[in-house]
């Protein structure tokens, strides 16, 4: 265990990257998810079809495969991405697909009467979506969104295969140096757990704040 504490700064740097990857890909994932959800609900036929296809592809293939395609595969087409950029893209695109399903369900669960009330005061469909439907949908979406967030935090470990120096990668480097497995793997396990718990805590607070009206 002493080894873990001695190398804590090195591991914490990895944990920092893990958090950064999670937050950035969640941020873009949220945007992608929202756009895709609205596209699937309100778009015309080709747009709906493209959105469905995107969700189907992403959910139907392993994240690891998506990561290596974006980092190694795209090189064949002259697109060379830095490992961190590739990681951001892969994780955002992946989270977006899952979140779009969450948002779609949440938007559909807002009662139809809400839209009618908004329309009857003269709102346009876009105004009603933004002011009335989405705020209510967000509240419904938070628990499943939390699942995706925490899942994402752990799945960032997959980008270690493209040499992003996140938590797992840092541990592997230390293992290669000291030939000791258990202390490092246990150590980062605990660090993942602490980060997940912290994230869950923040989401819970957020959920409670949105529930104030109910």
């Amino acid at each position: 265990m002493q080894l873990v504490f001695d190398n804590l700064p090195f591991l914490l740097k990895g944990a920092g990257f893990t958090l950064l990857l999670t937050l950035v890909s969640m941020f873009f994932g949220l945007i992608i998810g929202l756009v895709v959800a609205i596209a699937r609900l309100k778009g015309n036929l080709p747009i709906r079809w493209i959105a469905r296809f995107y969700v189907s592809i992403i959910r139907g293939t392993p994240l690891l495969v998506q990561i290596v395609i974006i980092y190694y595969g795209l090189v064949d087409y002259g697109i060379t991405l830095g490992s961190l950029t590739a990681a951001y893209i892969a994780l955002s695109v992946n989270a977006g697909a899952y979140l779009s399903e969450t948002f779609r369900g949440a938007i559909l669960s807002v009662p139809k009467g809400q839209l009618e009330a908004a329309y009857s005061t003269g709102m346009t469909p876009w105004q009603a979506m933004r002011r009335i439907v989405l705020p209510q949908a967000m509240r419904i979406a938070i628990p499943p969104m939390g699942n995706t967030f925490i899942g994402m935090l752990k799945e960032t470990s997959l980008v270690s295969v493209i040499t992003v120096s996140e938590l797992l990668r840092q541990a592997q480097l230390l293992i290669a140096q000291y030939y000791q497995y258990m202390p490092f793997y246990l150590g980062i396990g605990v660090m993942y757990w602490i980060m997940s718990t912290g994230l869950a805590f923040i989401l819970e607070r957020f959920e409670r704040r949105l529930a104030k009206a109910y």
Binding site: P111, G113, Q114, E116, A117, A118, S120, T121, G122, M123, Q127, R131, I132, P135, Q136, R139, L210, A213, Y214
Partner: peptide, 25 residues
């Protein structure tokens, strides 16, 4: 239009409901 089920916006206060159209529309 006034609805049978009221259809107030649950995420807004009474005042928030009344002024929503004034602000948005």
């Amino acid at each position: 239009m006034v609805f049978q089920q009221f259809n107030l916006y649950p995420h807004k206060t009474a005042l928030g409901n009344v002024i929503e159209g004034l602000i948005t529309v």
